[in-house]
């Protein structure tokens, strides 16, 4: 995803950074963009932004990150979280971004999308709907 960065002091002290920090409980500025999370992410090749890029956009207060698909492709497997050399739990940052849109009432999974499934176990349904619907 080509992206134009516009840096302003207002963004850095803006609502997005504060909200993600509060929801995730993580220090976003501990990340120094080494990219280890992206290198080890099993889902990176299905994402429009790499996990480290998601984190960077949040650091910069760029609200475009809220419309990225990457957080919805993240399966919360925590591979990034155990590998981050700075101890940033990126999975919690992904969760915070998902929650910002879920708490506006925007679902990211519809039962209609599963109409063709013959049989999905409850564990999959409960997990997916808890993660992707308000």
């Amino acid at each position: 995803m080509a992206h134009e960065l516009r840096l302003t002091g207002e963004r850095l002290t803006g609502e997005l950074v504060a909200k993600v920090e509060e929801l995730s409980g993580e220090n976003l500025y501990a990340c120094f963009q080494c990219g280890k999370c992206s290198a080890g992410c099993l889902f990176a090749d299905h994402m429009d932004l790499l996990p480290s890029q998601v984190l960077r956009l949040v650091q910069l207060g760029d609200e475009d990150v809220l419309s990225a698909q990457a957080p919805w492709v993240c399966a919360s497997c925590l591979a990034c979280a155990v590998r981050c050399p700075k101890g940033v739990d990126i999975a919690k940052v992904m969760e915070a971004i998902r929650l910002i849109s879920l708490r506006k009432g925007e679902p990211h999974l519809s039962p209609r999308a599963l109409a063709k499934e013959e049989r999905l176990p409850q564990i999959a349904l409960v997990g997916a709907f808890r993660k992707m619907t308000p």
Binding site: L42, F43, H46, V73, A75, C77, A79, L109, E117, K131
Partner: peptide
């Protein structure tokens, strides 16, 4: 052996899980 199978993405993103 420690790399995720795709977990609950199987509901909605079977394509991702199948690749995993």
């Amino acid at each position: 052996k420690v790399e995720c199978c795709g977990s609950y993405l199987t509901a909605g993103r079977a394509d991702v899980v199948e690749a995993r």
